[in-house]
Amino acid sequence: MSILENLNTPLMFIIAAVPIIFIALTCLFFLVKSYRAGLAMGMDKKKLKTAITSSATFTVLPSVSILLGVITLSGTLGIPLPWLRLSVIGALHYEGNVADIAARASGLPGGLGSGVLTAQTFVTIGMVMTAGILIGAILCIFVLKSYLAKVNKTGGKAKDEKASGKKPFGDVVFSAMFIGLVSAYIGSYLGTGTSQGNWTPLIVAGVSAAAMGIFEYFSRVKNVKWLDNFSMACSMLVGMAVAVVINM
């Protein structure tokens, strides 16, 4: 049996499925709990349902892209480990990079896929991939409660601001952080265009933005509210379709 065949046995799938099922049940538990809490706090049922449907439609396309990450890694690490990593704690931009670092540290100087993978190298890579991304979860256990309590101390201030008609500063920070996040990505697409001659990411981002503008126009100006749930996914689809067309 080759190493890849060993990594793709039913038992390996079962081992990977245990944490995935546990986390899926956790999500279900929090979904029900927060929905009930929303109702108990007097929130509109319609809005709670909108939060769920819009998040579901929003997630489908990025998930397909994450599935491609699983497929990409499955050629070198088998299917169960990448499936586990990208279903739960992992991140698309993180896995390949870290697997490569771990492979080099484990004695594959050319990185992941450059030589024959041994069972021990595989386990070492799996451990590095897991331990390397745990900081957020660890901070949640030890720091989250006190940190949020500290941050929310300004909550009263925010209510005063709202009452005075001023936009709460929390909202301003949230939007600003997102503007920073998106600016970095857009800048990197421009850099990709000028340095590598690959303008596709920038064009795709531009087309998606334009599509989003059209959806927002109908949603906000023409009051076609149901579009809100699909505007993000549809804008992305338009951008992705353009990527196919310009690469034909």
């Binding site: 892209s65 596709t200 087309v207 998606s208 599509a211 989003m212 992305m236």
Partner: peptide, 9 residues
């Protein structure tokens, strides 16, 4: 180009 599409929107 899923990510550029996401960040464009």
């Amino acid at each position: 180009n899923v990510i550029p599409a996401l960040f464009g929107a």
